[in-house]
Amino acid sequence: MESAEITPVSIKVFGKWDTKVEIRDPSLKRYIPLMPTYLPHSGGRHEHRRFGKSRISIVERLVNNVMRPGRNKGKKQLAYNIVKMTFDIIHERTGENPLQVLVRAIENSSPREEVTRIMYGGIVYYVAVDVAPQRRVDMALRHLVTGAKDSSFNNPKPIEEALADEIIAAFNNDNKSFAVKKKEEIERIALSSR
């Protein structure tokens, strides 16, 4: 009787995309997790742990952002299918790994500086502060999804194409991207209030 050889099975995102991706920004490296999962759905297991969301897959965080209030609120399967089709469109248009494109888009659209309000005796001062890496990733994902939703609303273009266009534009650091424009606006306001 021969013994069967056990080969390690490589888990890929959506069964297609490899998670070997280069993250150039060293401050975001800990906050963009790329661990492979069969299904990007943790069911909120991270909720009660401090910085728990920094341990769930970046693809699941994108899916959760697509479920923001509006048409897709609470529809995880619909959001999952939207992101899956978006990755296929990104691969068709760029010929690259969609995870690499998403990571580069997050790096290009995450602001490094923003403004906070400080009150001294009823007088409000706006002070420029550095943005924490976790918040940078949160803001980048939020702006990418918001730009896609705004461009597909009352438009025949489906949300999958709009999200793919937004991610590709942010990947190219193009000013047509809502997320890149928002980042530059936030940093410009912070620069003026130093």
Rank of each mutant, 00 (worst) to 15 (best):
V101N: 05
A162V: 02
L144T: 04
K53M: 06
M35H: 14
I32N: 01
M35V: 08
H48G: 11
R50P: 03
D165M: 01
R49M: 10
R61D: 04
A132S: 08
R61Y: 04
K73M: 10
A79C: 12
V9A: 11
T94M: 05
V129D: 02
K75A: 08
G147L: 03
A179T: 03
G44M: 05
K183A: 01
R93T: 09
P40R: 02
A162F: 00
D130W: 04
L28D: 10
E160K: 00
R93S: 07
A148W: 03
I6D: 05
G95E: 09
E47I: 11
K20F: 09
F87N: 01
H41G: 07
A170Q: 00
A4W: 05
V180A: 02
F51K: 14
N175P: 02
Y126F: 15
S57H: 15
V66P: 03
N65F: 06
I56F: 06
S151Q: 09
S10C: 08
I6P: 01
G15D: 07
F51Y: 08
S57V: 05
K182H: 08
L34K: 07
F171V: 00
D130A: 11
N155R: 13
S3I: 12
F14M: 12
S193T: 13
P156Y: 03
S109W: 02
L39Y: 12
R71Q: 12
V145I: 12
P158R: 05
D150N: 14
E107W: 09
H41S: 10
E166H: 02
S110N: 10
E107Y: 12
K16P: 03
V101H: 07
M1W: 06
R194P: 03
I89H: 04
A105D: 11
A169P: 00
R117L: 15
I118W: 08
K29P: 04
R194M: 11
L163Y: 00
R194L: 15
V66C: 11
Y125L: 15
K73W: 12
P133F: 11
A170V: 01
R142P: 02
I89G: 03
K157Q: 11
K182P: 00
V129W: 01
A190W: 00
M85L: 13
E187Q: 04
R93P: 07
I23G: 08
A164D: 01
R135E: 15
D165W: 01
I189Q: 10
G52D: 09
